[in-house]
């Protein structure tokens, strides 16, 4: 390949390779392609200058003249959001939940915010419309275990039920059978009595006696519950851990104690107030 050979037809240089009389053209890369390559090289240099890129020595790197940091950007963005909401947030902080519910502007804001907060944090257990699930109370009816006023709901959301917070709402149905507080026979009788409160089954005097001695302290003498103690209403036909005699009786021998986390510390106070107002509005607020 001493001499460059040019193809007679196109005038393009050949590579000097020849197969059965066919010669390979050494067509140069298109100009635009070569220019683009150089543009990317120059862009890389510009990037080195503007953004964090090169390690320098051990333990440090060039920060770039823009000083870009995705975490700093986020902090700035969140701060800007906070500023833009500052007027609202201050009004929420200065208001009690009753005042929020009474102020049409704040109520409107709380309902929009509360709906989003509810969907992310509450709906997994209580259902997307507050319709509840077995073992998770319905929030859209007027049957409240711990009270359905705004203040009651606020407290429950803040501190949870049987949660790890010191202020948490706490009630614990005893294990009547395992701890031998009542006999199996008495358990059957008192279950019949509880069923009779909703108009099912026949009550016996013996069942009523056991109820008054063992259950009335938390569930009320009329069985309609005591919200201060978290004793659920047994007379309204709404059952947390399942309907029917067997389900009711199961609570005597192996009581279930549902938990709700304390949201204080996880949600800020303004968010808790918003979601309180939202829950209160679902249908059963008192």
């Amino acid at each position: 390949m001493a001499q460059k050979e040019h193809d007679a037809l196109t005038g393009t240089e050949t590579t000097g390779h020849e197969w059965d009389g066919i010669k390979e053209l050494n067509t140069p890369l298109p100009r635009w392609w070569v220019y683009l390559l150089w543009v990317t090289v120059i862009w890389a240099v510009v990037y080195y200058v503007l953004y964090p890129s090169w390690p320098i020595g051990l333990g440090d790197y060039t920060k770039g003249v823009l000083g870009y940091s995705s975490r700093a950007e986020l902090a700035k963005e969140l701060e800007a959001v906070k500023q833009s909401r500052a007027g609202w947030l201050q009004r929420f902080e200065d208001s009690t939940v009753e005042e929020v519910a009474g102020d049409p502007d704040l109520l409107n804001y709380a309902m929009a915010g509360g709906r989003v907060i509810f969907a992310d944090n509450c709906a997994p257990c209580h259902g997307s419309g507050g319709q509840g699930a077995p073992a998770y109370p319905v929030l859209a009816d007027d049957d409240w275990i711990w009270g359905g006023t705004l203040e009651d709901i606020l407290f429950t959301i803040r501190y949870g039920v049987r949660a790890t917070h010191d202020e948490t709402r706490l009630s614990e149905m005893p294990n009547f059978l395992a701890d031998e507080i009542i006999t199996a026979e008495e358990a059957g009788e008192v279950t019949d009595y509880v069923m009779s409160l909703t108009g099912a089954g026949v009550a016996t005097v013996a069942g009523q006696t056991v109820f008054m001695e063992q259950c009335a302290a938390c569930h009320g003498e009329d069985g309609k519950g005591l919200k201060e103690l978290g004793g659920p209403n047994l007379a309204d036909g709404i059952w947390l851990y399942g309907e029917g005699r067997d389900a009711v009786m199961a609570q005597l021998g192996n009581p279930r104690h549902g938990e709700m986390p304390a949201w204080v510390g996880r949600l800020d106070d303004v968010s808790i107030k918003q979601v309180t107002v939202y829950v209160h509005s679902l249908g059963g607020g008192q």
Binding site: N121, P124, C125, A135, Y136, R256, E259, P261, R266
Partner: peptide, 12 residues
């Protein structure tokens, strides 16, 4: 972590 109760995780 801590967002849901153990009961919830069992059911879920």
């Amino acid at each position: 972590g801590g967002k849901y109760s153990n009961d919830w995780h069992v059911a879920h």
